[in-house]
Every structure is written in C-alpha cells, then in structure tokens.
Design a protein around this nucleic acid. Structure first.
Lengths: 211, 211
DNA sequence: ACAAACCGACTGAGCACTCGGTAACCTCTG
DNA sequence: CAGAGGTTACCGAGTGCTCAGTCGGTTTGT
C-alpha cells in the first residue's frame, strides 16, 4: 500500500542487512559504486549474492541505503552536538578530520566527499539517487550558509564575507581533502585541517585590530 | 625497439584520434570513466568502435591519452605564463575558474578534479593509470609547495604558514569546487573562487598590521 | 504451517576486445 | 604511366566475460 513496503520483519536479519551496508561502504570508498559488484560485497559480507538481493532488491536500493547511512552520519558530524555552532563549524570539521586516519575503513569517507566523489560517479543524471545527491549537496550548503549568516547577525563574523560563497568554500575544502585522502591515505589530513581551521577562524572572526 | 611504439604514421588519422579524445573527455566528465563505454564514445565521435580501437588499442590506452591531455592542460594552466607566481598562484587559479562556465563542455574539468574525481574512480589501485594519478597529484602538491616556499623566502608570504599544508589546502579547494561543479553546474564557481582568492591573498601576504 | 532468511543455478544484457575483411592512398618498378 | 604491393584507416560481425537480477528450492524460528 505505502510506497515503501516494510518487510514487516526484523531479527538478526537486520544485522545481516547492516553488515552488508558496512561492507558496501568500504568497497565503494575504494573502487567506487560502479567498480563494486554485488558479488564482491556479498562474498565479503558472508552471504550469497542472492542473499544480498533478498535484503536489497536491486543495486540501486543498496546504494540508497549507503546514501542513507552517510547522510545520517554527516548530519551527526556537523550538527550532532550543540546548537548553531556559528563559525565554530570550521573547528568542528577540523576536529572530525583529525580522527579520519584512525577510523580508516569503517566510518570513513563520511562527509560530502563520499557522496560526491564516489557515489556520484555511479549514477546517470536521471536517477533518483543522483537527485538525492544533488539535493543533499544543496541542503548542506544551505545549512552552512544559514549557520554563517546567523553568526554574522550575532556579530561573531565579519560582515564583508558572503556566507553562501564561504559555505561553498568550506564544503569544497572538505570534499577536496577527502578526495585527496582517497587517492593517497598518507597525506596529513589532520595537520592540513588544523592549519586551515585556525586560519579560517582568525579570518572569519570579527577580531580586534590587534595583531 | 623503443617501449612506446610510434605508429610511424600521421595524417587526418591524427584528427580522428584527437576527436575521439575530445569526446571521451566530455563523456568521462559526465559519467565517469567506468560509466562510459567505448561504443558511446565511438558513436559520438562518428567512428565505429573498431575504428576507435584502431587508434587506441585498449580502453586503458584511451584513458591514458585523456590523462595526457589533462596533465598538459593543467600544466599550461598553472605554470604556462610567467615564472614562479608566488602567492599570485591563487589569483591565477581564480582567474581560470572564472572561465569555467563558458568553457563548459570542451576543455573543462581540467585541473586536478578531473583526474582525481572522475578518472580515479575507474582504476583499481594496481594499474599503471592509478599510479600516474597519484604521482600527478603529489607532483602538483610539491610544485605548489615549492612556489609558496620561495614566496616565503622572498618575504612575500607570512612565515607562520606551512607551505605544504597550504598547498594541500589550495588543491583541495580546487578539486572540491570542481567536484561541486560536476554535481551541479549552476553553482557560482567564479564568485566563490574570487572571494576565496581575495581572502587567501590577504591572508598569505606579509601585510602591514594596518587593518 | 507459515513466513523470514537464506542458497545454487541460471539468464540476458552490456561490455571490451578480436577477426577478417575493404577502400583509399602512397611508392617503387617495368 | 600502369599497376603491383604495402600501409593506413577504417568497418561489421562476432566472442567471451562480467554482472545485475530471477527462479525454484531449503532451512529455521515462531
């Protein structure tokens, strides 16, 4: 009846389902969605491909689940703690980036990079998944923009900076760093993020002229 | 004898070859390397798939040619005019970004984003192509680092900024903006780049304390 | 006994790549 | 200058492989 049919069931089946998504995330982060076959994922997750397709009725359904996972994750990342971080958002981002290397495989590729870089490839521009991608991107920009704008209104942030452009810049930096990290995990993400955040904070803040 | 065999020939065949690469670039920018079939490219270029494979003996060979094209292009971009731009490099980048929308399909996706975001996906980590990608990335970081360092030595740039981290930041921004633009061509790349460059220049320069 | 949670074997489409041609052009020779 | 021979630049028809998705089963928990 309802467009999204609940399988009406739950048990350790949910556990399997989750495990499949876990594995899918790892594979996709490495080889991209198009470079990852259901057989690969199923084998690594310890089920048959048919078993996988029992839980997700198509590859696109699985990709949507992966997308869900990451939207939720980056939601938690950016807005999970505290209300309206203002320009502190750059510090929050930097803090999370500092923990990338340790999280390596499991929860990695989490912010926007995953979606844009890795998932985006898969999808031809007319799929629902692609639309979710674009929407998610826009939404994040909008929210960061709003955050910065409110910071301006509270007098925490310089007036001569356009919030939307700044938001785009912040997000570009995040996904760019993540792309770099996917190419070469050895790059010092944490250090780069730390310097970036320090300078951003200094730059954005309505500082006194004392240098 | 030599590892790279010259086909020894040249004519309007080279023209066809070039046209194929042109088309390949466009398709890859849209759908990624894995999402683009040789049949697609061949049809759009007005040759048969066999004809395409006459000029490039495999898909990987074609991708290498695309890579060549873009390495040369971004080389020209960043270091084509004048010697050692110093911190002016951010202005050079911004200037080129301002012309993205007009170049749209033809020469676009040129800096690092193309390689990282779009090509990188295709390639499993053990291919020669992937190595070229990683190398190109590192090389660019190194060159930007060197540029910034020399700017520091000439006293054009603040001393308390780490050149390598800054280089990574610059490149992350570029590829991030490009990724964003690939997702949604409507974003105001030029404006974002302009604001970014202005602030970067102000931030990097050894300015007087007068605010 | 009924559904949830799987499995093995199959199918059909899409893909990179091969094979056996053909037409146009250049070059060397009688 | 004819024309034989070679090379370049293609084409159409395959071929085999990979992959998403199907079908008909079996087991297990309730």
């Amino acid at each position: 009846m309802s467009p999204a049919q609940k399988p009406k069931t739950s048990a350790k089946g949910l556990e399997t389902r989750d495990r499949i998504v876990d594995v899918a995330v790892r594979f996709i982060a490495r080889n991209g969605a198009r470079g990852t076959s259901l057989a690969d994922i199923a084998a690594e997750a310890g089920v048959s491909q048919t078993g996988l397709l029992y839980h997700f009725r198509s590859k696109e359904a699985l990709l949507n689940a992966v997308m869900d996972r990451h939207l939720a994750f980056s939601e938690q990342w950016l807005w999970g703690e505290g209300p309206d971080p203002g320009i502190k958002i750059v510090d929050i981002i930097a803090k999370h980036m500092a923990s990338w290397p340790s999280q390596h495989d499991s929860k990695v590729a989490s912010l926007l990079g995953m979606n844009t870089v890795v998932l985006g490839e898969n999808v031809s521009p007319d799929t629902e998944l692609h639309q979710r991608l674009v929407d998610g991107y826009r939404t994040t920009i909008d929210r960061v923009t709003a955050t910065l704008r409110s910071a301006q209104e509270r007098g925490e942030m310089r007036e001569d900076i356009d919030p939307q452009l700044k938001a785009m810049e912040i997000i570009a930096f995040c996904s760019g760093i993540e792309a770099a990290w996917l190419v070469d995990p050895n790059i010092p993400v944490a250090a780069a993020a730390a310097q970036w955040a320090a300078q951003q904070t200094r730059q954005l803040a309505t500082g006194p002229a004392t240098s």
